[in-house]
């Protein structure tokens, strides 16, 4: 079976600065893959290429077997590719309810979105009419994850889910990721801190200096991680 998301020889960057120098990566259907790597390795850039925010200068991006190099991020989102970018991916000057309402652009019904989000995260229901910017960091990330839950995407791309959050919150969020995976959503999680992501992942890849240097099961990768980060040959 073809992988749901596949990058073949992708190079990309910002203007003259090339960040990805030929990345090959395949996310199997229904898998949770952790994409690890040190600062500046190009993890977020890879996610931006996959979600259509940056155009690959060479190589191919395939989603669901289709070539999507030139597709716009909104078209990809409507087709079932849910991306949660780095930082708090909510609209701070909109209420929680308005934030959820915007999730319906990806093709879900508003009532379903509210229902799913408020069932899974009762704290959001309490704050439905509050501005999202006034929520705590963890609550904002829950709101962002609620979009992934409610819109039932085919692929979920998450960038730095744990950034700046308390360990308990991180655990709860990764439970959501695991739950989504159990429902058949293919997930690509970018993490700088490996442990949380490796706990839920069934595949892992390590990106160093714009190249994928290792892929494999989470346990093998966990063992090799220090060497890979530090760049020594094992």
């Amino acid at each position: 079976m073809k992988p749901i998301l596949e990058l073949v020889g992708v190079t990309a960057g910002y203007g003259r600065i090339e960040v990805l120098h030929g990345v090959d990566l395949a996310l199997p259907r229904g898998a949770v893959m952790a994409l690890l790597g040190p600062n500046g390795a190009g993890k977020s850039t890879l996610l931006k290429v996959a979600s259509g925010q940056i155009r690959a200068t060479a190589g191919h991006v395939h989603v669901g077997g289709a070539h999507v190099n030139g597709a716009s991020p909104d078209a990809l989102a409507r087709a079932g590719l849910c991306t949660i970018p780095e930082g708090r991916s909510v609209f701070p000057n909109l209420t929680v309810r308005d934030n959820l309402r915007l999730s319906t652009y990806a093709g879900a019904r508003a009532a379903d979105v509210y229902g799913t989000a408020f069932d899974r995260f009762p704290r959001l229901a309490e704050r439905a009419n509050q501005l999202a910017g006034s929520l705590s960091g963890g609550e904002q990330q829950m709101l962002a994850m609620a979009r992934a839950l409610a819109t039932n995407p085919a692929v979920l791309l998450v960038d730095e889910l744990s950034m700046g959050l308390a360990p308990l919150v991180v655990r709860e969020l990764y439970e959501v990721v695991a739950g989504l995976a159990a429902d058949g959503v293919s997930v690509l999680v970018v993490e700088q801190f490996a442990d949380a992501a490796l706990a839920v992942a069934d595949r892992a890849a390590v990106l160093v200096h714009g190249r994928v240097v290792a892929t494999g099961g989470p346990d093998e990768i966990a063992d090799e991680l220090a060497n890979l980060y530090l760049g020594s040959v094992t």
Binding site: G64, A66, V68, R78, A79, G80, L81, G107, A154
Partner: peptide, 10 residues
């Protein structure tokens, strides 16, 4: 490019 995830065209 067509994306047949849900039969939705891109």
């Amino acid at each position: 490019p067509a994306l047949p995830l849900r039969g939705a065209g891109v």
